[in-house]
Nucleic acid binder design. Sequence first.
DNA 1: TTATTATTGCAATTGAAACTCAATAACAAT
DNA 2: ATTGTTATTGAGTTTCAATTGCAATAATAA
Lengths: 143, 143
Amino acid sequence: MGKTEGIGLFRDYLNQKGLRNTPERETIVREVFVTHDHFDVDTLYLRLRNKKKNISKASIYRTIPLLIDSGLIKEVFFEDGHMHYEHEYGNDHHCHFRCLGCKKIIEFKQDFIEDIQETFSKDYGFEVTGHKLELFGYCRDCL
Amino acid sequence: MGKTEGIGLFRDYLNQKGLRNTPERETIVREVFVTHDHFDVDTLYLRLRNKKKNISKASIYRTIPLLIDSGLIKEVFFEDGHMHYEHEYGNDHHCHFRCLGCKKIIEFKQDFIEDIQETFSKDYGFEVTGHKLELFGYCRDCL
DNA sequence: TTATTATTGCAATTGAAACTCAATAACAAT
DNA sequence: ATTGTTATTGAGTTTCAATTGCAATAATAA
């Protein structure tokens, strides 16, 4: 699940936008869907290098906006001076808790957000396409 | 409301932490509480310069973590490659909607978040001290 | 197969944030 | 008040994520 369809969806997206389907882009998408972990540009680049896929960082930086626009990945948080991502397609929806003590990230699910989105849409007449919810605090280990 | 107490609270925070109360820090806090708008380091720096308060960017960068730690300001969103802040104290709690079309930010209030925080705290035994909720989509003008 | 045009990799550039360090200023102890 | 100690300041420098220019290359259409 996720992995192969993700690539298909990205191909569709590229075609629809009149962009080209290149081996580099294909390799990047494939790697993004290998794990469910959060990733940043640097670790993605290194993961590819370790597999002898030498793709330049510039290409990764150029592909990420396309992946976001196509809905395959999303930004999740800005930490250590740079952005972190995760793939959206094939990943159950969840939010993030960030421990201010040990810096660990815990994923959790909840359903209230849908209500919030709907309430907001109705109140303002806007179209809500997504959200980002982050909780902060201290985990049990750090308390 | 907000403005003068904010400075008092920051003084308390500095004392409690054994840090010094300097005119630069005082000027920065004062300026932060002048408006309710979002701000970033650069605009804060320019606002101070326009008032002939020549405080270095370095000092602003060094003061911001203190203001966050003291609960006076918080990060609100990362945009245009850098962080944006707003003052928390003296500001009614609200979340942000970001229009993907015209890029405007709309503040809105809701109460569900408290429930989410409590549910999460109970489920995990963690202490939740704050949150960041952002909705994305298209405003009426852009639809 | 050829022509057109997007994409690639490299290198240079930008910009935010952090750091260096000498000079300065706050506070405590005299 | 004066001195010693130590945090803070500002200017400049450094770091590093992210972007961009450019020549070479490769993907699609004709």
